[in-house]
Amino acid sequence: MPPIGELTILIPIDVSNPDPPGLEVIDALRPFEVILLGYFPVPDQAEPALIKHEYEDEASARLARIAEGRDGVTEVLVFTHDREATIDRIADQYDCDAVLTAGDTDHIEKVLVPIRGDANVERIVSVVAGLLGRSDATATFFHSALEDAEPSQGEFLLRGAVERLTEYGIDGSRVDWKLSEEGDPSQNIVAMGTAYDIVVLGETEPSLRERIIGVFLSTLIDEIEIPALIVRDVE
Results as ranks from 00 to 15, higher is better:
Arg211His: 15
Leu220Gln: 03
Ile51Thr: 09
Asp222Trp: 03
Gly160Met: 12
Asp92Ser: 08
Pro48His: 10
Phe141Gly: 02
Cys96Ser: 14
Glu150Arg: 15
Ala102Ile: 09
Gln187Phe: 10
Pro114Leu: 12
Val25Arg: 00
Pro227Asn: 00
Leu217Glu: 11
Asn188Ser: 15
Glu56Arg: 10
Leu146Lys: 13
Ala61Met: 06
Glu223His: 13
Gly38Glu: 09
Glu163Met: 06
Leu179Trp: 13
Thr219Asp: 09
Asn17Tyr: 03
Ala149Tyr: 13
Arg134Met: 12
Ser60Glu: 11
Val162Asn: 05
Pro21Thr: 00
Asp148Ser: 12
Pro227Phe: 04
Lys110Val: 13
Tyr94Met: 04
Arg232Trp: 08
Ile26Gln: 02
Val76His: 06
Ala191Arg: 15
Asn188Leu: 15
Arg174Asp: 09
Ser126Gly: 02
Asp14Asn: 10
Arg174Val: 11
Glu122Pro: 03
Glu68Phe: 11
Ser144His: 12
Leu146Ile: 11
Val99Thr: 15
Ile213Gly: 10
Val125Phe: 01
Arg89Glu: 11
Glu147Gln: 10
Ser135Val: 06
Ser152Pro: 02
Pro114Cys: 10
Ile170Ala: 08
Phe156Gln: 12
Asp136Asn: 14
Phe142Trp: 05
Val231His: 04
Gly154Pro: 01
Leu10Ser: 02
Ser152Gly: 04
Ala64Tyr: 04
Phe32Lys: 00
Ile35Gly: 00
Asn188Ala: 15
Asp19Trp: 05
Leu7Gly: 01
Asp27Trp: 00
Ile90Thr: 12
Gln93Cys: 01
Phe142Tyr: 09
Thr86Glu: 12
Pro3Leu: 08
Glu56Val: 12
Glu223Met: 12
Val127Ser: 00
Val215Cys: 02
Pro21Trp: 01
Glu56Cys: 07
Arg65Pro: 02
Ala64His: 07
Gly130Met: 10
Pro185Ser: 03
Gly5His: 05
Ser186Trp: 07
Val113Leu: 11
Arg62Trp: 07
Gly169Leu: 11
Leu146Ser: 10
Arg30Glu: 07
Leu220Glu: 01
Val215His: 09
Ala145Trp: 09
Glu109Gly: 15
Thr204Val: 09
Glu109Asp: 14
Thr80Gly: 09
